[in-house]
Design a protein around this nucleic acid. Structure first.
Length: 418
RNA sequence: GUGGCCAUAGUUCAGUUGGUUAGAACGCCAGGUUGUGGCCCUGGAGGUCGUGGGUUCGACCCCCACUGGCCACCCCA
């Protein structure tokens, strides 16, 4: 085999596509209930869109993007996430002028050049939403409810909602300075990785998985205790809205988002059914992003959720019913003439929306019966010389094994009443 | 990018201390009397043992490199 799919990419084969469709239907149903409208943006953009919004220093931008020059030497990038493109489209098309609040959702592929592992691919799929135009904490909660509702409707139970606040340009720098000061006091107790993080992204030291870091930072102050009054009020608003809905949640003062544009609310939904990459969805508020990308100052909240991770959980614990379409009738032709009659008839029935299958391999009666059985066809119609002459045939019900005599001109009626 | 484990029919896997024609199950195909599937029985097709080197009289087996997969780190959905 010399031609293979790219590392970290996967074919979604017919055996799996039914469950994908079921999940996508659930997503669209929830989006409709919450009144979000779909937006479809290109999967590649100018590189600078991502480097500016996500942040030059993030891992995504600094080492994970699929970036290339096109024939006119312009630097383009396969989107590593959805938000930047949606905001670009929002600004470019002046959606903010058409209505004060835009509620948008998307479903589609994203690309990051990482080492593949459980729950991580180089081309993966996300669904997500962006709500632009309101800074109400209720909207933050609405954003959390959408993925939770998708999971609930798919029968997924083992999810946990974590929330935090990452502050804003008023309070975060002050806290950051304090944190760095504290961390420097205990720097030799930190893991080597965290010592490096102290320079690049000190907030990350807090959610390190390394036991040394967790021990060492036990008493370090957290952002949520240093919020400015506006951010603190917002965080309270989020919590009370969740409380009013009786949605269980945990405050994780160490939760950090990977992308630079987040302000105030950050949240994550995890599942114990996943491996090391246990985040099913993550999101938060980004009140400065629209302005940074050249739009009017507009507050926004959103989330992104991994489709493959959803599939993993679904396969383990979910209860989705995938309805597979089976042929209502499998028409077997015994000779040339019957086969061509069957082909014409099948086409007519199919145009009425009735699923029909035929043999195209010149197979024997026995083989065709086997095929009909394998396809779980509801009925089988055997057509030969005498059937064409008499204009009638026996239609066999494959479940019960019983046959009924029908007129060939009235197959539709027979199928309907059978 | 770093590390651990792994790579044999379409699929899931066996394959003795290196030794003749590499096996099983499932799947696929054909038959088990004339035009009726499932269950059962019989037979059949299907493998450059991931790729390329090396060691050896001889390599699926040992060594090296590469590629890919799985899992973890990093990071994240």
């Amino acid at each position: 085999m010399t031609l293979k799919s790219i590392r970290g990419t996967k074919d979604i084969l017919p055996a799996d596509s039914a469950i994908w469709q079921a999940a996508e239907e659930a997503i669209r149903r929830v989006m409709m209930a919450y009144n979000y409208q779909e937006i479809r943006t290109p999967i590649f953009e100018q590189t600078s869109l991502f480097s500016r919004s996500i942040g030059e220093l993030t891992d995504i931008v600094s080492k994970e993007m699929y970036t290339f020059l096109d024939r006119s030497e312009e630097s383009l990038t396969l989107r590593p996430e959805g938000t930047a493109s949606v905001i670009r489209a929002y600004v470019q098309n002046n959606l903010g002028e058409q209505s004060p609040l835009s509620k948008l959702y998307y479903v589609g592929p994203m690309f990051r050049q990482e080492r593949p592992q459980a729950g991580r691919l180089r081309q993966f799929h996300q669904f997500g939403v962006e709500a632009l135009g309101s800074s109400s904490p209720q909207l933050d909660v609405e954003i959390m409810l959408i993925p939770l509702e998708v999971y609930r409707s798919l029968g997924i139970k083992e999810t946990t909602l974590f929330i935090n606040s990452v502050g804003c340009p008023n309070c975060r720098p002050i806290y950051k300075k304090k944190l760095v000061g504290e961390l420097q006091k205990i720097v030799n107790k930190l893991s080597p990785e965290s010592q490096a993080r102290l320079q690049q992204n000190p907030l990350r030291v807090l959610d390190s998985k390394d036991e040394r870091d967790q021990l060492a930072t036990n008493d370090v102050p957290l952002m949520k205790d240093f919020l400015c009054s506006e951010c603190a009020a917002h965080f309270d608003g989020v919590q009370s809205a969740l409380g009013a809905l009786k949605i269980p949640f945990l405050i994780n003062g160490r939760l950090v988002r990977g992308l630079d544009y987040y302000t105030k609310t950050a949240f994550e939904i995890t599942s114990t059914a996943l491996g090391s990459q246990d985040a099913l969805a993550g999101g938060g508020r980004y009140d400065l992003l629209v302005e940074e990308l050249g739009g009017k100052p507009t507050p926004g909240v959103g989330f992104a959720a991994g489709m493959e991770r959803l599939m993993m959980v679904l396969q383990k614990t979910g209860s989705v019913q995938t309805k597979q379409r089976v042929p209502a009738v499998f028409i077997i032709g015994l000779d040339e003439q019957s086969r061509s009659w069957a082909f014409v008839k099948a086409t007519r029935l199919r145009s009425l929306g009735i699923p029909v299958e035929l043999d195209y391999l010149g197979r024997s009666l026995k083989a065709q019966m086997r095929e009909a059985n394998r396809q779980e066809a509801v009925h089988v119609l055997v057509i030969g010389d005498s059937e064409l002459k008499s204009g009638t045939a026996r239609m066999k019900n494959m479940k019960t094994g019983t046959e009924q005599l029908i007129e060939l001109e009235k197959i539709e009626d027979a199928l309907r009443s059978a």
